[in-house]
Design a protein around this nucleic acid. Structure first.
Lengths: 132, 132
DNA sequence: CTGCGTGCAAATGCTTTGCAAAGAC
DNA sequence: GTCTTTGCAAAGCATTTGCACGCAG
């Protein structure tokens, strides 16, 4: 065992399909969405494989976890600029927002050190709004 | 069935214990914390009963749900003013904040209707910061 | 008394894991 | 050929539900 880390990480058909799903979708996906997207073009792919690869890609730093209150975890491509998300109450999809607000540190009481924040907007996305 | 709603809602020892737990703790609790707190002074109480009563109290409007990313749902007394939460990375406790920011609507793209938002601050709370 | 509420255990849904077989290199 | 990855099915957890008994009203 030379280097302590360095996962071999073979380039299988399934792993390729999963990565493609994220690149193509370009929005946070949960394991189930990944399964559907990855299984779409290709033949069958197991849900366990999806979970294993996602965990793997997160450890590699290729994906980051997006946790929304009350939802199961989703994942998106890592390396994007600081951003937050919009959750459509109608279709359930999650979109990425750009930009952010400042002044969060002022919300905490004295003596509390703020090291990060999370913002989530709820509402109706454009396609759902137009459809109504 | 005269009135369509109006749950009879009997005042049992267990329900009293659960309500006490929330009043005493005065911070968001998850079902497991409720179980421990409610079971503390009194004799045994079932986890199923905790879940059933929490769901009940939420429907009644006595509790509201507090969903934190990556955590199981917590609940707190309803009727408080609009506020957000602070999650201490050290001790894991969740605190209530007062105040809020404005300008969230501007974060969404055109065509997206924003009906609500959620803010969560992460960091180190006062007691953990002092202890260091 | 009359039923609602409780407790237990079984059911459920999502995620993880064990193991033998298939595939990457 | 060797060693990782897959697929299936079983195991784990947290939460929910069915059912018979117990307690509140």
């Amino acid at each position: 065992m030379p280097s302590p880390d360095s996962a071999p990480n073979r380039n299988t058909r399934q792993r390729r399909a999963i990565r493609d799903a994220f690149v193509t979708a370009d929005r946070p996906l949960n394991p189930n969405e990944v399964l559907e997207l990855a299984a779409a073009g290709h033949e069958g792919i197991g849900i366990a494989t999806v979970y294993r690869n996602i965990k793997n890609l997160v450890e590699e730093g290729w994906l980051t976890t997006v946790e929304l209150p009350g939802e199961s975890a989703r994942y998106e491509l890592a390396g994007k600029a600081h951003h937050h998300h919009f959750h459509c109450k109608q279709c359930g999809k999650v979109y990425e927002l750009s930009g952010c607000l400042s002044g969060f540190k002022a919300m905490a009481p004295e003596g509390f050190e703020v090291t990060g924040h999370e913002v989530l907007l709820y509402g109706v996305c454009r396609s759902c709004g137009e459809a109504r």
